[in-house]
Computed example of a mutant assay.
Amino acid sequence: MRVATAFSYQQAIANLQRRQEDLSESQNRLTSGKRVLLPSDDPVAARRVERALAVEARVEATKRAAQASLNAMTLAESALGGANDILQAIRDAAVAAGNGAYGDKERAILAQQIQQYRDQLLGIANRTDAAGNPLFGGAGVTGDPFVPNGAGRVEFWAAPGSVGVDNQEILPVAVDGAYAWDATPGLEVPIFKTLDDFIVQLRTGGMTSAAVSSAVQTALGGIDAGMERLQAARAQVGDTLNRIDAIVARLDALDLNAKTDRSNAEDLDMVAAISDFQNKQTGYDAALKTYAQVQRLSLFDYLR
Rank of each mutant, 00 (worst) to 15 (best):
Met1Leu: 06
Val3Asp: 06
Val3Thr: 12
Val3Trp: 06
Phe7Trp: 04
Phe7Lys: 04
Tyr9Ser: 05
Gln10Glu: 05
Gln11Glu: 06
Ala12Arg: 05
Asn15Ile: 01
Arg18Ser: 13
Glu21His: 11
Leu23Pro: 05
Glu25Ser: 14
Gln27Phe: 06
Arg29Gln: 07
Leu30Ile: 07
Gly33Phe: 01
Lys34Ala: 09
Lys34Glu: 11
Leu37Gly: 07
Asp41His: 11
Asp41Gln: 11
Val44Glu: 02
Val49Cys: 08
Arg51Gln: 14
Leu53Lys: 13
Glu56Cys: 03
Arg58Met: 05
Thr62Lys: 04
Lys63Asp: 15
Ala65Cys: 12
Gln67Met: 10
Ala68Ile: 05
Ala68Tyr: 06
Leu70Ser: 14
Leu70Cys: 02
Ala72Lys: 09
Met73Gly: 15
Thr74Arg: 11
Ala83Thr: 03
Ala83Gly: 06
Asp85Lys: 13
Ala89Leu: 14
Arg91Leu: 10
Ala93Thr: 05
Ala94Ser: 11
Val95Gly: 10
Ala97Asn: 08
Asn99Thr: 07
Asp104Val: 02
Asp104Ile: 03
Lys105Cys: 03
Lys105Ile: 12
Arg107Tyr: 01
Ala108Val: 05
Leu110Ser: 08
Leu110Ala: 09
Gln112Ser: 10
Asp119Cys: 05
Gly123Arg: 08
Ile124Ser: 00
Thr128Phe: 00
Asp129Thr: 06
Ala139Glu: 14
Thr142Pro: 01
Thr142Ser: 15
Asp144Lys: 12
Phe146Asp: 00
Ala159Cys: 11
Gly161Glu: 11
Gly161Ala: 09
Gly164Glu: 10
Val165Trp: 00
Asn167Met: 14
Gln168Lys: 13
Gln168Val: 12
Glu169His: 15
Pro172Ala: 11
Ala174Trp: 00
Ala174Lys: 05
Val175Glu: 02
Asp176Arg: 03
Asp176Ile: 00
Gly177Ile: 08
Ala178Asp: 03
Tyr179Ile: 03
Tyr179Cys: 01
Ala183Trp: 08
Gly186Met: 07
Pro190Ser: 09
Pro190His: 10
Thr194Trp: 05
Thr194Gln: 08
Leu195Phe: 14
Ile199Glu: 00
Leu202Ser: 11
Arg203Tyr: 09
Gly205Asp: 13
Gly205Trp: 00
Thr208Lys: 01
Ser209Cys: 09
Ala210Lys: 03
Ala211Ser: 11
Ala211Val: 00
Ser214Val: 14
Val216Glu: 15
Val216Ala: 15
Val216Ser: 15
Gln217Ile: 07
Thr218Arg: 13
Thr218Tyr: 04
Ala219Asp: 13
Ile223Lys: 03
Asp224Ser: 06
Ala225Gly: 03
Gly226His: 01
Met227Ile: 01
Met227His: 10
Glu228Leu: 13
Arg229Met: 11
Arg229Gln: 15
Ala233Met: 07
Arg234Ala: 10
Gln236Asp: 14
Gln236Trp: 03
Leu241Ala: 06
Arg243Phe: 15
Arg243Met: 14
Ile244Glu: 01
Ile244Leu: 09
Val248Glu: 15
Val248Cys: 11
Leu254Asn: 13
Leu254Phe: 12
Leu254Asp: 14
Lys259Trp: 00
Asp261Gln: 11
Asp267Tyr: 10
Asp269Gln: 06
Asp269Met: 02
Met270Lys: 13
Met270Ala: 12
Ile274Asp: 07
Ser275Leu: 08
Gly283Trp: 01
Gly283Met: 09
Gln295Phe: 02
Leu299Asp: 13
Phe300Gly: 04
Phe300Pro: 02
